[in-house]
Design a protein around this nucleic acid. Structure first.
Lengths: 214, 214
DNA sequence: TAGATTGTTAATCGATTAACAATC
DNA sequence: TAGATTGTTAATCGATTAACAATC
């Protein structure tokens, strides 16, 4: 039944729409036209209408879109209320920050476990969870059936743990390790976050700006 | 003189090439053809050749590319050795993690200052830097001329601090705040990192996978 | 030289933008 | 009804892929 056909470019814009609509709603804006929204978001009205029409007609001719209704619909599409159980591997600096900083519950997930291979970290509290030792992973997965995992581990460990987690039923990876995780099977999805790449892109921009100046 | 014409899609792939070439070099691979590299990176050989040729002919017909030479060249293009002075605003959880975790020096930057509005954080050591109070920002910028800033602050503060920093000469922003910073003038560049958006994209993928299954 | 693989041009594909008829 | 703005089709633009002549 599903809209398998919606392009990735469109999907990746949905969270941004969701954010802007949230802001508008908070400010008390009731309705908005694609043109007005396009100005706020620095894109074209055409694109907004095209994007939204991938999922159905959310607007009304002559009126525009109802802000909170549209936000709700996009939230529905993204599945922000679906509460998929997710676990986090690697309770280092980055792992702890992600665990406490990311509002999983507002974004379609429920963080139910944090794991680390270092026994010294076992029992340490992060938010309302206690770090468990990675040895417990298999049993925990059998008992709690998480479907997603955040990887905050060194790149050397990524490939192996991803494979292991797949055998425990994990279907989605949010990968912060410095390694390009690839979804071999189509029943596993990967979102690689490469902060370093983002930073280097910024360096390029800054340097080429300087070059042009001269 | 500069290659202003190189498309953003190409630029965003450069750090990934750089990473893969680094791995290859580490493994002792001396030469690689676009076809071999394309298999490792899961893209087409055509694309690799097209991408690289935006910057000049780095290969040799009948041979391929010299791994470490190519890596060096791409590093040059990205400016990984350019050491642009950068400051970080917001020494909370996320700020501390970014400061310690990002290897700025390998990616074209030199982290020279960390700031927070909370006076209680002043003097706290992060890596080899001490947190300063945001009051000192202007003087610090005059004395040290940073050209870039990392924003690890709440979204409410982002617009204002970005404006202020621009008046102190900051040209590039790496923005982690939950706010879409926009570069009004073309002499300022922005790299918005929206981890929340990335996570929601993953939720969409996971949910639509479940939908299709049934 | 023969084989391999680049650099580069041409063809295809997909995504964005423009236009406009439908309709609230 | 008249004005506004969507939903949707068609046109344009850009990015990716294919093909092949140049050349190491």
């Amino acid at each position: 039944m599903s809209k398998n056909s919606v392009s990735n470019s469109v999907i990746r814009r949905l969270p941004r729409y969701y954010r802007f609509l949230g802001e508008l709603e908070k400010q008390g804006t009731v309705r908005i036209s694609s043109r007005e929204l396009s100005e706020k978001m620095a894109l074209t009205a055409s694109q907004i209408r095209q994007d939204l029409n991938c999922f159905g007609g959310f607007g009304q001719q002559g009126y525009g879109y109802n802000v909170s209704e549209l936000r709700e619909k996009i939230g529905e599409i993204l599945g922000v209320h679906s509460g998929n159980p997710i676990i986090l591997i690697g309770a280092g600096n980055l792992g702890r920050t992600i665990a406490t900083h990311m509002s999983f519950a507002e974004r379609g997930f429920r963080l139910i476990g944090i794991f680390d291979i270092d026994p010294k970290l076992s029992g340490v509290e992060i938010g309302d969870l206690k770090v468990r030792n990675s040895i417990e992973l298999e049993r925990f997965c059998i008992e709690n059936s998480p479907t997603a995992a955040v990887l905050c581990i060194p790149k050397e460990a990524a490939a192996e743990i991803a494979k292991r987690l797949q055998s425990y039923g994990i279907k989605a990876f949010w990968n912060f390790s410095h390694f390009d995780l690839r979804s071999e099977n189509s029943d596993v999805i990967v979102e690689n976050v490469h902060l370093g790449d983002s930073l280097m892109t910024l360096a390029y921009g800054l340097n080429s700006m300087n070059d042009t100046e001269k």
